[in-house]
């Protein structure tokens, strides 16, 4: 199914580890409707899990009274995912942030603390990922991820006319 215009799904999940699985399932459903392949859907599920986990753990102190908001916007070109948290543990710097490859050797040799891999994994799995400036009405952190659609072979065939040119 191909969306005409954009479709928006908005979720509010408690800021409690484990609830990110609801976002995983929701985004998988939306991604299937956009005809993303199964491996890309797995990538998107992992990326949203990591982003929600960060929002729960660091953005709202894993306080279940708070909410993490997930906004999924699907259009012809892309799936746009916005994760909002209250930013109670501080506001993340706007932009890409830390992008380095995890120092697993340092972790194994106990020279580096375990963890810090989530953002790296996200960046490897989606096309765009960054903290953005919230609108004036919003406070806290907003983390945006974008995954562009690549038309499948079936769609390519259906969109190519007799002249062989894409409509």
């Amino acid at each position: 199914m191909r969306p005409q215009g954009s479709r928006v799904v908005e979720l509010k999940i408690p800021s409690e580890l484990g609830y990110e699985k609801i976002a995983r399932e929701a985004v998988a459903t939306v991604a299937r409707r956009l005809n993303f392949g199964e491996e890309k859907i797995e990538d998107i599920k992992t990326a949203i899990s990591e982003a929600c986990t960060n929002a729960i753990r660091y953005g709202s102190g894993a306080d279940a009274r708070m909410k993490v908001v997930v906004v999924l916007t699907a259009d012809d070109e892309k799936l746009d995912i916005l994760i909002k948290d209250p930013g109670v543990s501080g506001i993340a710097p706007i932009g890409g942030g830390e992008t380095g490859i995890p120092d697993i050797k340092g972790m194994v040799e106990e020279k580096k603390r375990l963890g810090g891999m989530g953002l790296y994994i996200i960046r490897m799995l989606v096309d765009e990922a960054e903290f953005i400036q919230p609108n004036d009405d919003d406070e806290g952190n907003q983390f945006r991820m974008v995954i562009y659609r690549i038309p499948s072979d079936e769609e390519n065939k259906s969109e190519v006319g007799d002249s062989g040119r894409r409509k």
């Binding site: 699985k21 995983r24 992992t46 899990s49 990591e50 986990t53 697993i104 972790m107 194994v108 040799e109 106990e110 375990l114 963890g115 891999m117 989530g118 994994i121």
Partner: peptide, 15 residues
């Protein structure tokens, strides 16, 4: 479901 916190646990085991 495996996440980065789970991977960190496994790195601890590797250590």
């Amino acid at each position: 479901y495996i996440n980065s916190a789970g991977i960190a646990i496994l790195i601890g085991v590797v250590t």
